[in-house]
């Protein structure tokens, strides 16, 4: 039972042991998991009540960096980034883009922001884990969502790149007046890049505090590790 409201302009870190329900929470927010009880409102709409075009339009406003990224390895980076616009594109345009990549300047700018400007035409499966994570973030940059969901978006990145990645996601969410909801396993990261921390345990909210009221030691205790 989760009772949680995230307002516009908020950057929320979701923390908790594995199996606590973090990924399910994100799934509820992007409509890929339907609630068995209770209700969910995302950007003012209930994903479970929508169908067809209306559901797609809602989903196009929610961008997700999945835990396992779920990129298509056989496609070039440019297509994986462009996939962020599939919600806005017609089927024909999507097909033609595989032959002649559409909206190339945006893709190049997005890849440049994540430091992969020279990998536009690389096959995605040939990239390292950290590079793929940044491709997934570039996909969100071209998608321009109002709500940004991220499941361990920096797990394969070194500390410097991880900071960049989270700052980017935060900026992306805030520049359109939206919100960021990120599952993080690193307490320091949560304190640095978010405004509010929500702790989950066995599917329940057990902690909900603004960052200002928390210290690294509080969070470390929450993760169950010695401070």
């Amino acid at each position: 039972m989760v009772d949680l409201t995230v307002g516009p302009g908020e950057r929320v870190a979701v923390v908790g042991a594995s199996g606590a329900g973090k990924s399910t929470l994100l799934g509820l927010a992007n409509g890929s998991v339907l609630p068995t009880a209770g209700s969910v409102r995302v950007l003012g709409a209930d994903p479970a009540a929508l169908r067809g075009r209306a559901l797609r339009q809602l989903r196009a406003r929610v961008g997700t960096v999945h835990q396992h990224l779920e990129l298509v390895g056989q496609l070039r980076v440019v297509h994986n980034v462009n996939a962020g616009r599939l919600g806005a594109w017609s089927g024909l345009r999507a097909a033609w883009s595989l032959v002649r990549p559409q909206g190339l300047p945006d893709v190049e700018a997005a890849l440049d922001r994540v430091g992969l400007a020279d990998r536009v035409y690389e096959r995605t499966e040939r990239l390292s884990g950290g590079q793929r994570q940044r491709v997934a973030i570039a996909r969100l940059l071209v998608q321009q969502p109002d709500l940004v969901l991220a499941d361990e978006p920096a797990s394969a990145l070194d500390p410097v790149l991880a900071d960049q990645a989270l700052r980017l996601l935060g900026e992306l969410a805030l520049e359109r007046g939206g919100a960021l909801l990120a599952c993080l396993h690193d307490p320091a990261m949560a304190l640095r890049h978010c405004d509010r921390v929500v702790g989950l345990a066995a599917g329940r909210v057990v902690l909900d505090e603004p960052v200002a009221a928390l210290s690294a030691a509080d969070l470390a205790a929450f993760y169950g590790a010695p401070a």
């Binding site: 797609r56 599939l86 919600g87």
Partner: peptide, 18 residues
Amino acid sequence: PRAALTALGARPAGAWLY
């Protein structure tokens, strides 16, 4: 990967293609 594309609002044809 296909489910991820559906989650970001892709049409069924687009999600299937990519």
